[in-house]
Computed example of a mutant assay.
Amino acid sequence: MPVAPARPITLTASERKRLKTMAYGHKTEHRLRQRAQVVLHAARGRPNARIARESGLHLDTVRTWRGRFAEHRLPALSDRKRSGRPASFTPLQTAQVKALACQLPAESGTPLSRWSAPELAREVVGRAIAGAISASTVRRWLKQDALKPWQYRSWIFITDPAFRSRAERVLDLYARIWNGEALGADEYVISADEKTSIQARCRCHPALAPGQARAMRVNHTYGRGGALAYLAAYDVHHAKIFGRCEPRTGIAPFMALVDQVMTQEPYASAKRVFWVVDNGSSHRGKKAADRLTLAYPNAVLVHTPVHASWLNQVEIYFSVVQRKVVTPNDFTDLNEVADRLRAFEDRYNATAQPFQWKFTTSDLDDLLARLDRHTADHPEESSAAPAT
């Protein structure tokens, strides 16, 4: 039976360049490299039998790729689309599952606070969206649209009508500005607050030190030794902490902290000392400001906006205390808690540097603008009751 003659191959300059890249590139798939080499050999006028012998391919394989290139050029060297296994689910079912994940379970009467992949799979079957479906399939579909209904973040409305002006005053103080004027060398900014209910939990068995491939082990059961409050004042620009432990919070413990700071130099003879505080009950409102000024005429109380304690830098220090001193909690009594906190203050003050505060008034304006746009896009949320 006569054999069809080999198809002649003539390459353009761009085709030759692309084929050489495919044939000799380090990242080219092996099958594409072989096909490109077949075409390059064919372009040099070599017969199919010789190409098959030199490349180690079957003669029919060489003839196939030479013919495909002659008819459809470079795109023909890629694999043709294959039908594959029929899809188990329709696009409509996929969309219905994603839509279900975007609903709160309570909206459909399901007694869950949030969806998980297994619960969604069970709900899909219960609603007859699909006869059967696995949790891994649901998770894979949700991953395509970055949907994770099992995660959540809390949020809160801005309820303080003077939010921007109050926040701006605090941020200006961090930048050493007050009422548009730079602070002098004899003016200081103190950030103060209370960390409540630090418990003394005496573990029933001593903690085990970490070992090779083993984390530190802390016994789960403990005896309660009471709780105390830790009050701290942080010099924002000089990174110095003044702390004290009290049985509870209140006006008297807070004023004791003020006395502890304001009777020391350089604060006692300073021109002004600004105290940045949140709206806690021990230092809330104009009465607290008047009480502070009456006790120390050079002290100025500055409140953060309502629900904006994150603007108070001493909260960063409290987070350090929580990570490095309080957790894991293993103290025999409250005296040991107080001693540990005082010792940590000394250790911290020996090496502390001011926090690299980067949130400025420009960032504040950007934040408020984003909130305004969100409120405009979702007017139903702006009329909802404020979160508390």
Rank of each mutant, 00 (worst) to 15 (best):
P210A: 05
A227P: 01
G223H: 13
Y230A: 09
I158P: 07
A232I: 04
E168R: 12
Q151L: 15
R217I: 13
R176D: 02
G184P: 01
R140E: 06
R203E: 03
R164N: 12
A182S: 15
I177W: 11
T196A: 07
E168M: 09
A185F: 02
G226D: 02
L231C: 10
N219K: 08
W141F: 07
E168T: 15
D172F: 02
Q212I: 09
Y152E: 13
F157M: 15
C202W: 05
R166P: 11
A182T: 15
F163S: 06
W178S: 12
P206R: 13
K143Q: 10
T196P: 06
L171P: 07
P149D: 03
S154I: 10
T159F: 06
R140N: 11
W155A: 14
Q212L: 12
W178K: 05
E194Y: 10
R140W: 01
Y222I: 04
Q144A: 14
R176F: 01
G211E: 15
Q144P: 00
H220N: 09
L171G: 07
C204T: 11
A182N: 05
L147Y: 01
A209C: 10
V218W: 01
H205T: 07
A200D: 00
L142G: 00
A192F: 00
I158Y: 08
G184D: 04
V170W: 07
H220Y: 11
R176S: 01
A229G: 05
P149G: 02
G225Q: 01
V170Y: 07
H205C: 03
I156Y: 14
I156L: 14
P161D: 11
L171N: 08
E181T: 10
G225C: 04
S154M: 13
F163L: 08
G226A: 03
A213V: 08
Y188W: 06
S191I: 07
I198K: 00
I158Q: 12
R176A: 03
L231T: 03
Y222A: 11
Y152A: 13
L228P: 03
Q144L: 11
R214V: 13
R203H: 04
A213R: 14
D172C: 11
E187W: 01
N179A: 14
Y152C: 13
D145C: 05
A232W: 03
K195H: 02
A213G: 10
A209R: 15
R169I: 08
P210I: 06
P210C: 09
R201Y: 05
G211A: 12
A215V: 09
E194M: 02
W178N: 11
W150N: 04
L147P: 02
Y188V: 01
E187S: 01
F163N: 06
T196R: 11
Q212D: 13
H220G: 10
S165T: 15
Q199L: 06
R217P: 01
I177T: 15
G211H: 06
C204I: 07
A162M: 12
R139N: 05
G225W: 04
W178R: 11
L231N: 10
D186K: 05
Y152L: 13
R203G: 05
E187Y: 03
Y152P: 06
A175R: 12
P206A: 15
D186H: 08
A175Q: 10
H220L: 13
G223P: 00
F163R: 08
G225E: 04
A175F: 06
L231Y: 12
A185Y: 01
L171S: 06
